[in-house]
């Protein structure tokens, strides 16, 4: 009997794991954005002394994980599982980061939804009594993503207004069976939504239906309403996806206009920083959550947050083969209090 399941897609954690520390590391551009004061480390050079952008991304993730563990006054050998993933082929950033850490490792691919995918799995493992301390992490890097998914850096192409800017950054969260919060209380796992969009320059539009589906399902399963949350925040829908979500949620009977925003909208000043629709990438939700949201929750400015990281599960090959973009969104409820 699955005693912890409520509704069709949600799990209510009966021993909610506590977030005992986080870490966020960002690149120079993110470090100039509106959230700059919330990040633990801001790089001056996004190569970070490495000789390729891919190696730099692996280092970003490794250092973020180490820093989070250190912030919890733990050492890597006290961590029982590492859940992490990234955007690159065969999630190499995560594999190479885990190589240095010697923590039992589950590699995940959820594209930009990886932050909540890892938090969901980590929280359920801890809640289920399979581990006391786990780390959930993810990373992305503008320059490694750009060359895998788009054009070479020095190629003189114009970016469409619907395009998003991959965040250079990594975030890590340490979950523990004991602690004084904030806690992860609910996990709503999303289903793939695909409305046939094929434009890889408009990922917000491709992912918005997944976020809409997961959030509506979360409300149905838990009985919560939008007002029960201080903040509902999606991963990287950016400005276009955000506006779609607000519109369509309203049509479905949920007014999110007061307490909803998107990590991709928060992280950059789109006009000043010329990031068009906003930020994207696994690192987007990761650094906004582990930097901004976590710190605001610890201060008590936010008490209950629904974090919904969103992913576009296409590849450059699938796009060339005219496949549409499958979207995914996973939600976790983060609560300062447990009832």
């Amino acid at each position: 009997m699955a005693l912890k399941r409520i509704g069709t897609q949600t799990v209510k954690l009966s021993n909610p794991p506590s977030i005992i520390s986080t870490a966020s590391i960002v690149g120079p551009k993110e470090g100039e954005g509106p959230l700059k004061d919330y990040f633990d480390v801001i790089l001056e050079d996004d190569l970070w002394g490495q000789d390729s952008f891919e190696k730099s991304e692996a280092k970003l993730q490794e250092e973020a994980i180490k820093l989070a563990i250190q912030n919890a006054d733990l050492s890597p050998n006290q961590i029982e599982y590492l859940f992490s993933g990234d955007l690159l082929n065969q999630i190499t950033s995560s594999g190479y980061a885990a190589r240095q850490l010697a923590i039992p490792y589950f590699g995940l691919y959820g594209a930009c939804s990886t932050m909540t995918e890892s938090l969901s799995l980590g929280a359920m493992i801890v809640d289920g009594g399979f581990a006391d301390k786990v780390v959930c992490a993810t990373s992305s890097h503008f320059s490694s993503a750009e060359r895998q998914f788009r054009f070479p850096l020095e190629y003189g192409a114009q970016r469409p207004f619907s395009s998003q800017w991959t965040v250079t950054g990594a975030g890590a969260t340490v979950l523990s069976s004991t602690g004084k919060g904030p806690y992860i209380t609910y996990v709503t796992t999303g289903k793939i939504q695909d409305y046939g969009l094929v434009d890889a320059n408009n990922m917000g539009g491709a992912m918005a239906p997944a976020a809409i589906d997961t959030i509506s399902q979360h409300f149905k399963d838990t009985g919560y309403n939008p007002e029960d949350y201080d903040l509902i925040i999606t991963g990287d829908l950016a400005s276009i996806g955000k506006s779609i979500l607000l519109d369509l949620m309203k049509k479905a009977g949920y007014d999110l206009s007061k307490n909803y925003t998107d990590c991709g909208v928060k992280i950059f000043d789109n006009v000043k920083q010329d990031t068009h629709a906003g930020g994207s990438g696994c690192g987007c939700a990761a650094v906004v959550f582990n930097g901004y949201i976590y710190k605001e929750m610890v201060k008590g400015n936010l008490n209950r947050v629904l974090l919904v990281a969103t992913g576009a599960l296409h590849s450059s090959t699938s796009i060339l083969q005219d496949e549409s973009i499958p979207g995914i969104a996973h939600a976790v409820t983060i609560d300062n209090m447990v009832f």
Binding site: P160, F161, L197, A208, I240, S243, L248, K251, A252
Partner: peptide, 20 residues
Amino acid sequence: MENMNNKEYQKYVEQKIPKP
């Protein structure tokens, strides 16, 4: 969302994209 088919959604998204 339920009462929108792929075509309708694609058309709706198209008008959300800022014009160059």
